[in-house]
Amino acid sequence: MTTENSARLIYVMGPSGAGKDSLLGFARERIGASVMFSHRYITRAVSEGENHIALSNEEFATRLANGLFSLHWDSLGLRYGIGVEIDTWLARGMSVVVNGSRQHAGTAHARYPHARFVHIDASPAVLAARLARRGREDARQIEARLARRPALALPSAAQCITIDNSGLLADAGHQLLEAIGHAAR
């Protein structure tokens, strides 16, 4: 899906609580319009700090049936989609950052073989504290979410970097900017 002008998909992923949305916001504020940041369509109400559009299950199914998602997946009872606008942006030579899923990174790589993958992670203690502060789930749900650590399975040809976001947001944010900058060149 990339063009000869080096437009690239930058696929950001990681466990809940790793700070993906915060890092994406940090990067977006500093990059400006030189890179496109997609939003996700999710069958969940919008929470503070998230860049997504809330859809009902029926709305999601209608969009999926009409081919309006470039990527989509189900996780923990929710449905997630990335709109087809990313294909237009890539075709016009713009690099695009998406907030994806670790379990579906292989599908993204198959569709966008020149994508760069950025895995955001944090220590288990930091993940637990952030999930508790977020307040979306009770203690049992948080424990189940933390126990769910799927293996990151990407083909060997995939370009993937890992950023530890256990410390200061600015430290990990500058690493993400570097990853996006290299991918956008």
Score class of each variant (00 low, 15 high):
residue 157 A to Q: 14
residue 73 W to L: 07
residue 123 S to A: 12
residue 109 H to D: 04
residue 33 A to G: 07
residue 170 A to H: 14
residue 148 R to D: 14
residue 84 V to P: 06
residue 3 T to F: 00
residue 179 A to R: 00
residue 172 A to T: 15
residue 91 A to D: 15
residue 55 L to C: 09
residue 153 A to V: 15
residue 179 A to W: 09
residue 1 M to V: 11
residue 94 M to S: 14
residue 105 A to E: 07
residue 64 L to I: 05
residue 96 V to G: 05
residue 163 I to D: 02
residue 78 L to T: 07
residue 53 I to D: 01
residue 96 V to T: 11
residue 47 S to P: 09
residue 124 P to L: 06
residue 23 L to K: 03
residue 129 A to N: 05
residue 127 L to D: 07
residue 33 A to W: 04
residue 145 R to T: 11
residue 109 H to C: 09
residue 167 G to L: 10
residue 90 L to C: 14
residue 109 H to Y: 10
residue 32 G to W: 15
residue 102 R to Y: 08
residue 73 W to A: 15
residue 152 L to R: 02
residue 161 I to A: 04
residue 34 S to W: 11
residue 32 G to S: 09
residue 100 G to D: 00
residue 79 R to G: 02
residue 153 A to P: 02
residue 37 F to H: 12
residue 1 M to A: 14
residue 2 T to A: 15
residue 112 Y to H: 10
residue 19 G to A: 03
residue 142 I to R: 10
residue 34 S to M: 02
residue 77 G to W: 14
residue 81 G to S: 07
residue 39 H to K: 09
residue 113 P to D: 14
residue 25 G to M: 10
residue 36 M to K: 11
residue 43 T to W: 00
residue 154 L to S: 08
residue 174 H to P: 05
residue 19 G to L: 11
residue 81 G to C: 09
residue 158 A to N: 09
residue 64 L to H: 05
residue 98 V to M: 08
residue 87 D to V: 00
residue 44 R to T: 08
residue 32 G to Q: 13
residue 80 Y to I: 01
residue 87 D to M: 11
residue 137 E to V: 06
residue 164 D to Q: 03
residue 120 I to F: 01
residue 93 G to A: 03
residue 9 L to S: 02
residue 48 E to K: 15
residue 133 R to P: 01
residue 121 D to A: 14
residue 39 H to V: 11
residue 3 T to W: 00
residue 119 H to L: 08
residue 179 A to H: 04
residue 51 N to F: 08
residue 174 H to V: 04
residue 9 L to P: 01
residue 141 Q to I: 10
residue 54 A to I: 09
residue 59 E to T: 08
residue 60 F to C: 11
residue 134 R to D: 13
residue 18 A to I: 05
residue 1 M to C: 09
residue 32 G to L: 13
residue 134 R to G: 12
residue 23 L to T: 03
residue 164 D to K: 15
residue 161 I to M: 13
residue 49 G to K: 06
residue 128 A to R: 10
residue 108 A to R: 06
residue 147 A to I: 08
residue 24 L to K: 00
residue 37 F to S: 14
residue 16 S to E: 02
residue 74 D to P: 05
residue 114 H to T: 14
residue 107 T to M: 01
residue 142 I to A: 12
residue 54 A to N: 06
residue 62 T to Q: 11
residue 89 W to Q: 11
residue 184 A to K: 06
residue 14 G to R: 13
residue 33 A to M: 12
residue 171 D to L: 09
residue 73 W to Q: 13
residue 128 A to E: 15
residue 99 N to R: 01
residue 3 T to V: 14
residue 108 A to G: 12
residue 28 R to D: 14
residue 162 T to H: 12
residue 80 Y to K: 15
residue 126 V to T: 15
residue 38 S to C: 13
residue 147 A to F: 04
residue 5 N to C: 10
residue 23 L to V: 05
residue 115 A to D: 12
residue 165 N to F: 07
